[in-house]
Structure formats: C-alpha cells, structure tokens
Amino acid sequence: MNSMKMTEQSTEQRERLSALMDDGLTELQARQLLRDLQESEPCREVWQAYHANQAALHGAPQVDVLAGVNAALDAEEAKASYVSEVRHSRWIGFAQGALAAGVCLAGILALWPLAGQSPQSGPDTVTTQLPPADATAYLPRMDSYWSRHAQFATVRTGGRWDETERSHGDDHGQESSL
C-alpha cells in the first residue's frame, strides 16, 4: 500500500518537474515543487536528468544545475543575517524554507536558458546569466494582488471566480453561455 502511494507521489513529482521544465506551473506550484526539490534526493536526481537530456538535445554543454542552486543558496545565507532578529518565531523554519525555495528558484531561473540556448553559446554565457540572489529572489507581482482582489470581491457568497475554460488559437465553435 505504502509503495503504491510512493509510486503515485513519484509519478506526480515527475509530472510536476516536467511541467516546471515547460513553464507550465503557477508561481505557487513552482515554489512548492522547489521546496520538494530541496528535501528529496530522488526528486533532485530526476531534475538533474531532465536538464542533462535537454542540454544533450540542444547540443549544449552539461552544467551542474544543483551546484548552481547551491551556490545561490550559499550566497543568500551570507546575506540573510537580518533574519536572525526574528529566529525565535515558531514560523522561522517555514520562512527560511520559503527563503531558500526562493533562492533555489532564482538559481534555477538563472540556469533556465540552458535548455533553449543554441549550440554556439559557450559556458561563459551560463555564468554571466546568474544574477545576484538578492536581486531576483523577490519577484514583484503587484498585478496579481489586484487580480486576486477582483477574484473574491465580486462574489456575494464568500466564494471566488476561477477561470474554468478557455479557447485555443483556432477554436471558435464554443456556444454562447447565454
């Protein structure tokens, strides 16, 4: 029973990693997955393998993605001293996790272009694409706050509006909802 559950988890994680490679996850889903990536060795291995495959497909040099992420984490650790003031909080563990996940995201985003880069690009390009962790770890998302308010504020019953369906490029056969 347990092994079946683990297999399901593993399959789900692979699907989510694949979706992350294809830029198919929301920011929140990506954060969650990156947390898993930090904690789970098998998950990291799959991620590494995906990158190696992508690099091979595009003829790009193989780069140690995890080393890039770890370097970003190390850099962040040195800059995170301001957090020490609130270490007594019972949620600091979570906050640190989120912080590290953000740095992880920064590291991965920095290495992301590898998958699509041309064979002519050299390894130097990869190195210069790594931004300082503190500059990219926080992604401004003011528009998403406005959207979220609109999503909830116009529902009387304490619910929310969710996008449930949309047409594709050439799809125009949808009947009117009226």
Binding site: T157, G158, R160, D162, T164, R166, S167, H172, E175
Partner: peptide, 20 residues
C-alpha cells in the same frame, strides 16, 4: 441574438463562481 456572431474566430475564456 448571439454574442459570437460579431466576433468570428474569437478568443474566449470563462470564469465560474466556486467556494473559497
């Protein structure tokens, strides 16, 4: 009479109300 009549080959998306 039919909203899509004025926009052939339109792009559309639909929102529905759900619980929190």
């Amino acid at each position: 009479a039919e909203i899509r009549s004025s926009f052939p080959q339109a792009f559309w998306h639909q929102f529905e109300e759900s619980g929190a």
